[in-house]
Nucleic acid binder design. Sequence first.
RNA 1: GCGGCGCUAGCUCAACUGGCAGAGCAACGGACUCUUAAUCCGUAGGUUCGGGGUUCAAGUCCCUGGCGCCGCACCA
Length: 504
Amino acid sequence: MRDRFRTLQEIRERGIEPYAYDFDRRHGLEEARERYLEKNRGRDEDEEEEGPEVSIAGRVRSIRNFGGSMFAHLADREGRLQIYVKQDVVDPEGEELMELLDLGDWVGVRGPVFRTNTGEVTVRAREMRLLSKTLRPLPYGKEEVDDEGERVVHSGFTDQESRYRERYADLAVNPEVREIFEARTRVVSRLRRELDRRRYLEVETPILQPQYGGASARPFVTEHHALDSRLYLRIADELYLKRLVVGNLDRVYEIGKDFRNEGIDRTHNPEFTMLELYRAFADYGEMMDLAEELVAAAVEEVHADGEVEFEGETVNFSRPWERVSYLEALRRWAGLDLREADDEDLVEAARAVGREDADELDRPRLIDAVFSARVEPELTDPTIVHDYPVELSPLAKRKRGDDSLAERFEVVAGGYELVNAFSELNDPLDQWERFAEQAEAQRLREDLPEEGPDEDYVRALEYGLPPTGGLGLGVDRLMMLLTGQSSIREVILFPLLRPDEGTA
RNA sequence: GCGGCGCUAGCUCAACUGGCAGAGCAACGGACUCUUAAUCCGUAGGUUCGGGGUUCAAGUCCCUGGCGCCGCACCA
């Protein structure tokens, strides 16, 4: 770095501004290449004509200096392109810059596109400007393109911790990382588009909430000074969105962050992105169709063929998805018949999957432990598991014809829960009772902030929630699946890490 | 929270049973006007994650703290 400060001084002494104010960039690097190919379409390579003129900008990715001339690659968001800078061809400022450039510097180049003797499409620099001087060397690896045209990186920037802590460097240096986040943006936009098209209203509900609910998780707690009151960061959007349906907003959705103060591992980040949507006059059956449609649309944005490689398996998203009831799934993959199993059997089954604390768990937790351990890992292709035990689903309507079940389903794919949906409970009295049961269960957990039932939510239900279907989709999990990443941190730009004073 | 593994130059990694801390790339100086992991000659670069201990001698062994990764637990 000391050396680059010296270079910086040198640049200033020569009267060149190392931090430019603007540059009239007209073409992306891929775009510039395509313009050349377009112009010479139909010609053999040796008959191609020079041109067109382009104006490009990017980071210096490699330099091959020959004294009087220089080859370099620039890199931008789209890709990379070679430039050729030659004395007496480039303008005087560009000529001076030839010996002052470092890897990572931002430069702007104007000139015609041509093809070198070795066949690479290249921009001949007539003008070259320094746009921003890099003081800290980027952790570039060395790249080569092998005989198959594959990009091979030697000693790249691969340390996970450094990559997450310095995501800017990660993104600047590793194109495949950039691709993941561009895919993420495409998918989220597509989900919005699909819902907008179906006349859902996108809304924003509070993140700071006086009461937390809609899921069971430990919340982050904060406080508001002026109001002198305790607030929670939301753990789910659910209860506010359903309030909106009470308010005649009959189709709503929100894509936003939820916050859960639980452990961190490869599939959990304390803040994560959820899509929640609610549709009046629909039940969970219609939500099943919608779930298939939304996920299929998302898959289309990333994999045209509808197949995804994930953790060594091929996940096939083609529709329709298999549908199996929760009880049948437990019977089939865990050998457990809930209709006949008593508490004793459940404890035993839970212990068999490694829950040593099985004695202390209530029935729903026992069942869920077995389901997570024995059933979910078996489900590679997306599968709709429907009709959950009502104890596991405090916000879902009871199933028609069977009070012990709820009209709820999850979509499991690649072994992970992807979608959770149900026919929303709209009976205020039933809701009140289930809140009471939930509060009772929560009292047993000392680690949770004490919380009474959400009276205002029940009040809203008393005004009348129409029959409503609701659906939640974990956007981060979806992106893991679609991009084949087994760590959630690879699909979150700035995952939460413990603060590190040592980062210099 | 528990267990295992890891942390050495800007990056990627070496360093045997404790015995002079090294390489490639990057950087710096020089040569080279069609190269592409450019090449050639030369130079510099270190709190071996922090603190303590054992030893004639510690990157290496011991204790302690930090951070990360993996697994487990928690996350109905």
